[in-house]
Write a protein that binds this DNA or RNA. Sequence first.
DNA 1: CGACTGATTGACGGGATTCAACAACCGTGG
DNA 2: CCACGGTTGTTGAATCCCGTCAATCAGTCG
Lengths: 207, 207
Amino acid sequence: MEAGQIILDEGKHSTGCIGLLAGFTYRHRTLRNGARQIISVHVPGDFPDLQSGLLGTAIHTLQMLTPGRLALFRADDLQRLVSERPAIRDALWRETLIDTSICGEWVANVGRRDARGRIAHLLCEFAMRLRSAGLLEGDSYELPMTQDQIADATGLTAVHVNRTLQEMRRTGLIHTERRMVKVNDWDRLAALGDFNPQYLHLEAVRN
Amino acid sequence: MEAGQIILDEGKHSTGCIGLLAGFTYRHRTLRNGARQIISVHVPGDFPDLQSGLLGTAIHTLQMLTPGRLALFRADDLQRLVSERPAIRDALWRETLIDTSICGEWVANVGRRDARGRIAHLLCEFAMRLRSAGLLEGDSYELPMTQDQIADATGLTAVHVNRTLQEMRRTGLIHTERRMVKVNDWDRLAALGDFNPQYLHLEAVRN
DNA sequence: CGACTGATTGACGGGATTCAACAACCGTGG
DNA sequence: CCACGGTTGTTGAATCCCGTCAATCAGTCG
């Protein structure tokens, strides 16, 4: 799939389900006033549309953030898999529970942190999830989001995201080049974002 | 249980799970800066801690909003129930998926609506969920939250919630007396909150 | 009747938005 | 190779919604 391609549209009926093999996707919703909110971002290994797939209708738009590859599961195959293989069913269930956990953290992020905190938290979460997916070795990684998208994920405006990122660069917290983010001071970034990775429930994957 | 009583504390190990029989509960999280964010509110019929129960650790504090009654499920009973009764398993799974859906809507609410919109949305959601739980007949209901709690649910301050509620009363949108909220103009309230009940996935309950 | 919690009010300040313009970047095609 | 159009990033000034602080009022309960 190409970057920006829409996988599933808001309001559409949906039965199957996809697994994300490579690249990143994100779910978002547009309000009537035109404002957009990104609800979640997905890294390889995630199942971005379990929710709509199992509930039947998509409540959000699911879109490619970067070019990537998907695995498609047909509805009946998924059903059979879930009923015949308890371990897989439990793993998928667990995945949906972790989705909720991350979503709850986003509520707190958007609701109770200032701009610096929100962005710092987003950077920390993304780094952590990449690392747990085995896609990050050192302390720099590619954040495949435009400032517009960061704004829509954090409930800010692109202008303010820009100014806040500049401040974080000025104070030596991070370094950016192209779309590459380098975290210079992880501890200070985590403190700024009040980041506690517990909500990601990574224990099971630690190994 | 009494109002305000803590059912499950942040960070605690948790194996069982509860069902809410009567009264309301809410989950919340306190950030290091002292700010509090309410992540979700539960009405009778909900299972407020499926997430922590199945994942093993509570990431949020679960607390009684009002006096109420709970049903306790022991961990092993829950396990057996889930593995022996596919219908119950599916219903519980569905419940967790709807939790996620509501949580996503809250992200959008807190991230992209102004104070009036957020509060209007909260009022609409609560009314709708009460109605679907069979606890609401007319157009007035008891909102069992203090303005402080409304603030923590919407990412605002109590002061601003107060002023916004006053404005909503002045313009005849709602009427409040004690903790009782009467919706005078549902259509205008829903429009103000940009409320679309689709995300609640109430079809299945419509009976 | 005091003590407490919750609701209300006013003045002030500030973080974030808005608007608008400009610069930098990128892939495309002549 | 460079001109180009579109997207993304940057900047400044003015504005405003909401937060902060602090005091007061109202209702409840022992």
